[in-house]
């Protein structure tokens, strides 16, 4: 048991203590986590982003045009200012322009490719079921027509497909949550107490 492991285990237990009830140990851990996480990002971004993309081009490569985006970036600072917050819009919109690319690309990957593979020959029960499921759910999300009568019955089939889909997601969600807890208990029992080999 090293000091490092001891600290990590103590802080792990601080967070777990919340399960009993809210208490000062948990609050201490929570606030420490927020501070360390943010403090951690600053030198990392300075070294790996500011130096190579701002400092080096301007001061070492003398590419002075980079001063303009650097000033644009600096305008972020005014985000919380009462009178000058509009200045912070400039760095935001510069990055936002790329959504222009997402229009054709999302259309391709999320819609067209999915539709193409949904149009397989209906030669076995599974492809028929997939076809029925996809179509009825799409109809279910079509809100311009009231879900009544025969149309309501068709969209209701979509609901059953969705319930199975949500059930599958739910089963996997349980799995994921349990896995994360297993990881922490493996740390406490294995790395900290040395009981797992």
């Amino acid at each position: 048991m090293t000091l490092s492991n001891f600290v990590a285990a103590f802080l792990t237990l601080c967070i777990f203590s919340f399960l009993y009830k809210e208490n000062p140990f948990y609050r201490f851990g929570e606030h420490l986590l927020v501070g360390v996480s943010m403090g951690y990002a600053i030198p990392l971004i300075y070294d790996t982003v500011f130096i190579p993309y701002v400092y080096r081009p301007i001061f070492l490569d003398h590419n002075y045009i980079i001063i303009i985006p650097a000033v644009l970036g600096f305008l972020y600072v005014f985000r919380y200012s009462k009178n000058l917050s509009w200045l912070a819009r400039y760095p935001i919109v510069f990055g936002m322009g790329i959504v222009g690319m997402s229009v054709p690309m999302s259309m391709h990957s999320q819609v067209l490719v999915q539709m193409k593979t949904a149009m397989l020959p209906l030669d076995n029960i599974n492809t028929i079921l997939i076809f029925i499921g996809t179509v009825t759910i799409l109809l279910y999300f079509f809100f311009s027509k009231a879900h009544k009568g025969a149309y309501g019955k068709v969209t209701n089939i979509g609901v059953w497909f969705m319930m199975i889909g949500f059930g599958a997601s739910f089963g996997y969600t349980v799995m994921a949550r349990i896995s994360l807890l297993i990881g922490r208990i493996q740390f406490l029992l294995g790395d900290f107490l040395g009981l797992i080999k």
């Binding site: 990590a8 802080l11 967070i15 929570e30 949550r177 349990i178 922490r184 740390f187």
Partner: peptide
Amino acid sequence: FKNVQMPMSATMFSLLAFYI
């Protein structure tokens, strides 16, 4: 990072196992 940030952020999420 290794002994403060990592264990606590992992534990935060593992609480969800109890809630589920």
